[in-house]
């Protein structure tokens, strides 16, 4: 009965088998040529795209790391420069202060030395004056003793001695 129904639909097992065999030829061609090559091409492209994406991800990650590192380096450099500046400022101030102290000391020394020189000179002058004074006194006494000196001469002598 099934055969009769199928026959009315134009079924012939020989034709069905021939068409199936022809389909199998198509299947063989598709599987071994088309699908294989297409699959390989798509796979290769997907791998390349994936590799590109991975590389981009790695580069992005490296960029972020570099940014962080850069920020850290800049921060450190900023800190270091601040320390150096503060240190330089301190040193500068110390140098100025030391220079001031040294200059003061030096000035004081010079002043002392000058004062000493003045004192020395004064002493020396005083001594020389004393000597001169003694000599004058002695000369005066001698002249007075010899009677060579009257009031007028005495006046002139004193004036000449004082010049």
């Amino acid at each position: 009965m099934i055969g009769e129904v199928l026959g009315k639909l134009g079924f012939d097992w020989k034709v069905a088998l021939a068409n199936l065999v022809n389909f199998l030829i198509i299947y063989y061609l598709l599987r071994n040529v088309v699908f294989k090559k297409l699959g390989a091409a798509i796979k290769e492209r997907q791998e390349r795209i994936q590799k590109g994406l991975d590389d981009a991800k790695r580069a992005e990650s490296a960029l972020v790391m570099a940014e962080v590192e850069k920020d850290s380096i800049l921060k450190d450099a900023h800190k270091e420069s601040k320390v150096i500046l503060e240190d330089a400022d301190k040193k500068g101030k110390k140098i100025v202060s030391d220079a001031k102290t040294l200059a003061g000391e030096e000035a004081s020394k010079i002043k002392d030395s000058a004062l000493k020189d003045i004192d020395k000179t004064k002493e020396q002058t005083r001594k020389e004056l004393e000597k001169e004074y003694v000599s004058l006194v002695l000369d005066g006494i001698e002249k007075v003793a010899k009677g060579e000196i009257d009031k007028n001469k005495s006046q002139k002598l004193a004036e000449s001695l004082l010049k």
């Binding site: 020989k14 034709v15 021939a18 068409n19 022809n22 030829i25 198509i26 061609l29 088309v34």
Partner: peptide, 22 residues
Amino acid sequence: GFPITNSTLFILLITLGLVVFS
């Protein structure tokens, strides 16, 4: 002994087209 029908030729046409296109 195997009958070749117009649908069989149609399949051969597909096969040929597929080969050329591939």
